[in-house]
């Protein structure tokens, strides 16, 4: 079990073995406002780091969620379809988006740890 890491686009990653759980940060959900819809990827989809993984919609905005690491989508959080508010309520927990089987673990190196991300958000 490794520690949580963040991208500059405000996605988080938590790695367990060779699988990574991905979501958006509390800062991101706060900026977005009330989440009304989440468009999740198909299971089995192979995705490159930095490419569109999902779309999250508030009333007035639709934002792409980019894959912070590349790999194959092995699981998606279907509960968000009926309860998109979960992203607002528990962004780091029940509001996860997808699980990705890592293609290249070294991609994690470019991501920020908790402290670095906090400093990054404070600088915005």
């Amino acid at each position: 079990m490794s520690a949580i890491r963040y991208s500059k686009e405000h996605e988080w990653v938590l790695v367990d073995g060779d699988t990574a759980t991905v979501g958006i940060s509390p800062y991101a959900q706060e900026q977005l406002g009330d989440v009304v819809f989440v468009e999740l990827p198909e299971i089995g989809k192979k995705i490159e780091k930095g490419k569109e993984l999902a779309v999250v919609e508030s009333v007035k905005a639709a934002s792409e969620v980019y894959a912070p690491i590349g790999g194959e989508v092995v699981e998606v959080n279907n509960a968000l379809t009926d309860a998109p508010a979960t992203v607002n309520e528990d962004a780091l927990g029940k509001g996860w988006f997808a699980k990705i089987k890592l293609a290249n673990k070294s991609e994690l190196d470019g991501l920020m740890d908790e402290a670095a991300y906090k400093a990054y958000v404070a600088s915005l």
Partner: peptide, 12 residues
């Protein structure tokens, strides 16, 4: 559901 529309989604 206006996030489907051009004034928000633009090229998408």
């Amino acid at each position: 559901l206006s996030t489907r529309e051009q004034h928000i989604r633009r090229e998408k």
